[in-house]
């Protein structure tokens, strides 16, 4: 699924990154605990999380994840957005809660 579709399905806005139509994810994973995310080893995964610390970006960076979808309408601090930009990770943000964002994406065929 292209990130442009993720944007449209979840009503998200793009906080950092560009050319969303060129970035593709094949899976999604939702968690607020970083070690839980780190246990997964699939690079082509969209990380869905309510955590907006620099460690969210670091976690994605370690795993080579292309994009993060921040849920629950969390404000993304400037330094976190900057870190996403410098590490080349696309950062999206939506007001939907994790359950609904996950449900909508799953319903549209993005597998776990």
């Amino acid at each position: 699924m292209k990130l442009t579709e993720v944007l449209e399905i979840t009503g998200a806005t793009c906080v950092a990154g560009e050319h969303l139509d060129t970035v593709e994810v094949n899976h999604a994973f939702a968690s607020d605990l970083m070690s839980d995310v780190l246990a997964m080893s699939r690079p082509d995964t969209l990380l869905i999380t309510g955590l907006t610390t620099p460690q969210t970006i670091r976690t994605a960076q370690m795993l080579d994840l292309p994009a993060i979808l921040v849920v629950r309408g969390k404000d993304v601090p400037q330094d976190v957005a900057d870190l996403a930009r410098t590490t080349g990770i696309v950062l999206l943000a939506t007001h939907e809660i994790m359950y609904v964002a996950s449900g909508k994406l799953y319903a549209r065929g993005l597998s776990g």
């Binding site: 869905i48 609904v100 996950s102 449900g103 909508k104 799953y106 597998s111 776990g112």
Partner: peptide, 17 residues
């Protein structure tokens, strides 16, 4: 056994919105 994403997805598809 499923992840929170998949569990959410399955329940959502079942109609729990």
């Amino acid at each position: 056994r499923d992840s929170a994403y998949t569990v959410s997805g399955k329940l959502y598809v079942l109609g729990l919105r």
